[in-house]
């Protein structure tokens, strides 16, 4: 998969300068970096939510996107999930795995943050995408739900062969789930490596970042 280079400027300040990049089809790439490094902006541009300065979407693929703050529509949990597809068998498989069975008839507005994120992930995985972009999908989840989500994402990738970008603050999660890691620093990809290569950072910024996270 080829991502064409793009930039994004807010109020005259360049927040993202992303070069042309090739990503192996079907790989899971964790995007890490400090706050304000451009991770969410990158995710939104790839998903087509925001336009880059050039106005051309860098990846012309059927993309699914889960925002940082999951939104629950004013309807039952089941209806929220079925919004994105009518395959009830698939929905059952997803909500059972994510432990939402007991909440199906509840108004989704009344779910907790973690439950909303679980529901949002189920809802997204109801459809087959070529590219999946998840912005901190497990940030609000407990350990059990996080593990289930990671398994679900991997299974989804194996089944559909899609490429996955996961914006994450957890390097442990990046190690568990991804094939490669992309480190953003001050709006630029400062380093990119295979997950196994996390022990041998090439740049000083990435080394300090890893050190801070105790990797």
């Amino acid at each position: 998969m080829i991502i064409s280079g793009f930039t994004k400027t807010y109020d005259g300040r360049c927040v993202l300068d992303f070069p042309r990049m090739e990503i192996s089809d079907g790989s899971i790439c964790s995007v890490v970096g400090t706050n304000g490094s451009g991770k969410t902006t990158m995710a939104k541009i790839l998903a087509g939510i925001e336009k880059p300065d050039s106005g051309i979407r860098p990846v012309e693929l059927n993309a699914g996107y889960m925002p940082q703050r999951s939104f629950a529509f004013r309807m039952s949990v089941l209806k929220n999930i079925m919004l994105n597809g009518d395959d009830s068998e698939r929905a059952k498989l997803l909500y059972e795995k994510m432990g939402l069975t007991a909440l199906l008839n509840k108004n989704a507005k009344n779910l907790s943050g973690g439950e909303t994120a679980r529901m949002a992930l189920c809802r997204l995985l109801m459809k087959d995408y070529d590219l999946l972009i998840l912005d901190e999908p497990t940030a609000a989840m407990d350990i059990e739900a996080t593990t289930e989500s990671e398994t679900l994402i991997k299974e989804y990738r194996d089944k559909t062969g899609c490429t996955v970008f996961i914006v994450s603050h957890s390097l442990q999660q990046a190690k568990r789930i991804s094939d490669e890691v992309l480190f953003l620093h001050e709006g630029r990809p400062a380093e990119r490596c295979r997950t196994e290569g996390l022990n041998a950072p090439k740049t000083e910024e990435f080394r300090r970042f890893l050190e801070f996270y105790g990797v």
């Binding site: 998903a47 939510i49 699914g64 996107y65 939104f71 529509f73 919004l83 459809k127």
Partner: peptide, 24 residues
Amino acid sequence: FSVRETAKGLGISRIKSFFLLCNE
């Protein structure tokens, strides 16, 4: 913004997205 972002992220059409907004 949340409705638009979520609907667009799921690939929901603009019309359906508008109805979702109205439902909210």
